[in-house]
Amino acid sequence: MNYLTNPFRSITITLSHILETLGMTLTILINMVGQYRLIPKRSKAILHQIEICALGGFPVAIIVGVFSGMVLALQAGLAMAEFGQETLVGSIVAASMCREMGPVMTSYILAGLIGSTMAAELGTMKVSEEIDALEVMSINPIGFLVLPRVLALALVCPLLTIYTNLIGILGGGIVSRVILKVNFSLYFRFAQETLTLKDIYSGLFKSLIFGFIIALVSCGQGLNAENGAAGVGKATMKAVVISFIAILIFDYFLTWMFY
């Protein structure tokens, strides 16, 4: 109620929420790192999660990839056509896809699709006492539930990014051919010439970090859900929002680190 009338108060509240979330997520991260010895024991669960993440993300990644590439080609191509440089559109699409659009768009999709699922699943487990039951059985919920999910998404995110990149470049090629009248071989030659190894691996490294963060944040929100179904809904919403914001922030710093 005071939020609007007292900006200082709202800032302190927001700040304390951010610090709380950060602390909670870091605690889970540290606990998870301490469980690394469990990785072989959890291999079945990890594979299962990889399957869920990959199958869930794949169809949407195709659509998002195609349209990202098409939009890029259209925007860049039309601007460049004014200077008669539209033949270079392949370079722009390939570089932007691999460095930026591919990793970020794929991560956004995975945050919406997989992160929300993880938060809802773990949140439901929390409010129905399943997490308590695990703890009483001396099974660490972080090793049992969080570790496989984080590893799976950190692996699947770069893999899906490769798909998104390829499909995006292809989509860009189609727009270049149909609208800008740049033929395929020219488009792909410029795409290939511009792309450096660094463009590719920096993008994939970003994806890996984003996947890791999405799963960590979402599981963390789920494990801290409270107050029944409403609490699970809130945890799910927060998981997606925090993932989005974290992707943006980390994207900036990772880009700054690489270039």
Binding site: S128, E129, E130, D132, A133, E135, V136
Partner: peptide, 15 residues
């Protein structure tokens, strides 16, 4: 906790 077996009121089976 390894000494305990706990039947939760809600059951708390892993779904």
């Amino acid at each position: 906790r390894k000494k305990f077996g706990f039947l939760f009121q809600s059951g708390a089976l892993l779904n």
